[in-house]
Design a protein around this nucleic acid. Structure first.
Lengths: 225, 225
DNA sequence: GGATCATGTCGTCAATTGACGACTAAATTT
DNA sequence: AAATTTAGTCGTCAATTGACGACATGATCC
């Protein structure tokens, strides 16, 4: 893996660059994308290409051999880092009625929390959302919408509760849990929140409250104009 | 304080700048702070001073008559716009046991949602949090911590539920509701979420779920190491 | 009506910053 | 080993961007 061709003639890297020497096209490209995700997640979408290049251990010029512009690089980072990690399995797992819904939800949210709601993912997503750079958030919105409906439906089925017809209301019911979990992730990764309680335990608490409070929740959703 | 010397000479700003002509020191300063909050909330803390000046309808140089640097201006905006709107009344209202806790919570969160969780406040707060510009987020953390304890305690008292001793767990219980509400605000103001359901109704739903599911919630929090 | 001071603008400087032409060097082929 | 292709760098350009000295303009006071 390491060519280690100790031609240290290049006075520029000045730092342990990737540690690698030369890389073939696709590898270097991936290497840059990897660092770029980390970099923009940390410093925001306005981070400079020179700093990014330094973080990659390559010259700034090299970035433009792989991406025509910074905006193009950002789009790639977004689709690879933000959209990429979503798993199609989740919907299947959530509808597997051989297990109690509380177990399914715990299984799902533990995975979701560790796969999606990471510091890197959250910061990038928030930066992109704030910049309203229309980097296809519709795709994510559609996935989440499906998730919300599934979570609500599965819980209602097990709790033998009648759901309202209005799909918007259905989504809001699902968001009760999903929003609490998402905000928990924001607290952990963005604000310097305490971590005394283990994340699995907090997730379990939110899920228990959702499942067992579900009848009151749907009833509370029902009335009102 | 205000001479308000009705010298109406000012109606010839040549452009639709602020609309005002000359302003006394304090008024212009406030005028700038107002626009700066709006501006940085929209374009992020990396927004340029020239654009801000244009938005204010004044020259860029003038900003430096009131603030020694962009960073200083940002600090002022933060303390005025983010920290300023918090009200001490809230804790008193929340502990007024002559009313049912659900009513108190509805009253509080409607006010909180409209006063704090606005688009401007949220965007600024998120931008500042992401930049981890240490603009005294500890103060806010302390306020919220108080709120979480109060909400949990008041609900537990009315529902005759024993709360756990661990304060961290106590906070997490409160965050169940507060996080869901905060994330609801993020959805409304940051993502292009649907607004079919009125905000009061969604708030009421979250609160009802919290209050009536409270026993299950505390029980769910109790077990587990 | 001019002196004086506060309000506000012009123009500029030095450092950044995205982008890219021209070049160097390592790998691969012939 | 020379030729060719590929990976990577240097140096620079034009546009930005925070900051500020010098100057202008309007209000207030004598």
């Amino acid at each position: 893996m390491e060519a280690r061709s100790a031609k240290l003639r290049n006075n520029k890297p000045s730092k342990d660059n990737g540690g690698e020497g030369r890389l073939p096209y696709e590898e270097r490209r991936e290497h840059i994308l990897q660092h770029a995700a980390e970099f923009f997640s940390e410093y925001g979408l306005t981070g400079q290409t020179r700093s990014l290049a330094a973080a990659c251990g390559v010259s700034q010029r090299l970035l433009y051999r792989f991406f025509p512009s910074k905006a193009a690089l950002l789009r790639e980072v977004y689709s690879e880092t933000i959209i990429g990690p979503f798993k199609a399995v989740w919907l299947a797992q959530l509808t597997d009625r051989s297990k109690p819904v509380e177990e399914r939800l715990n299984q799902f949210y533990r995975d979701y929390f560790r796969t999606i709601l990471t510091r890197k993912w959250l910061r990038l997503f928030l930066y992109a959302s704030l910049a309203e750079s229309e980097m296809a958030p519709d795709y994510i919105a559609a996935i989440i919408k499906d998730l919300m409906e599934t979570v609500s439906r599965e819980t209602a089925h097990e709790q033998r509760v009648d759901l309202p017809d209005d799909p918007a209301l259905l989504h809001e019911i699902g968001w009760t849990l999903h929003g609490a979990v998402s905000h928990f992730a924001i607290r952990r990764h963005l604000y310097k929140a305490s971590r005394e309680i283990s994340e699995d335990r907090v997730l379990a608490m939110h899920i228990a409250a959702f499942v067992h409070g579900f009848p009151s929740l749907v009833q509370g959703a029902g009335d009102g104009p």
